[in-house]
Design a protein around this nucleic acid. Structure first.
Lengths: 123, 123
DNA sequence: CTCTGTAGTAACCAATAGTTACTAGATATC
DNA sequence: GATATCTAGTAACTATTGGTTACTACAGAG
């Protein structure tokens, strides 16, 4: 019954890859707060390009994590909302975000130590 | 006090990126079980190349999540172990892996629905 | 004397991430 | 009346990363 996450063909690994997506997680956490339109998302998430946003929204929709609703205004506006499934995933991501916030200092300190060590050895 | 994860310069986002690394998470979960040598890891994680393994191990060490210990045998063996910090991160990843295992079916079903819909519209 | 094992590195190639310009139609601005 | 702005993307291109493969050097097994 226990899937082997280390096997190349393990489908669970596909999901971990999806979550590994830099932008997907940010979008999911945002949409959990409120439904949002395309350009609204683009403005909120600094650094994301139109192409990546479009791409990631599509794959999130494909996975059933968000839904897309076109509203017949002029010009057409499109609203993205999180699904029930998406909410459960976002909840699973929360501990990770919390860990990042709590342990950021330690990680940065470790990086400084490592880099200083390398410099020393080079000298 | 609340960092804005959506800001481009938010350091927390760096950490999320790191976790987003496809291989890093797998290595972390493996090393939590037992310390392992380089080639042992390579054989266990299907599909990883020498270069990626080497690269990811280095960055995990830099972040203070694992430690590297060279043992003076012939040929030299190198043992990688998880750190205390790494253990806490692995724990934060657990809910994610659990989510993936639980909801894999739903996601795959959603993908099939989406793809079928597209096909229909194309016809 | 060739084959295996050790832990990587270097050079190269493929795939993905990211950038930028563009669509079309309506509304606001000058 | 011409220009700029808004909507949600797409298409073509480039930069960056991911991945493959060959190679190092030395010891032990067969």
């Amino acid at each position: 019954m226990k899937p082997n996450v280390y096997a190349a063909d393990c489908p669970t690994r596909q999901i971990l890859d999806r979550v590994g997506d830099k932008w997907a997680v940010l979008i999911l956490l945002l949409l959990r707060e409120d439904p949002m339109r395309f350009n609204q998302l683009r403005r909120t998430i600094e650094g994301i390009s139109q192409k990546m946003l479009s791409q990631v929204l599509k794959s999130l929709e494909r996975d059933g994590l968000i839904t897309r609703r076109a509203i017949a205004t002029v010009p057409v506006t499109v609203e993205y909302s999180i699904t029930q499934l998406g909410v459960t995933l976002a909840a699973a991501v929360d501990p990770l975000r919390d860990w990042a916030e709590e342990n950021l200092k330690d990680v940065l300190a470790a990086q400084r130590r490592y880099d200083a060590q390398l410099k020393e050895e080079a000298a």
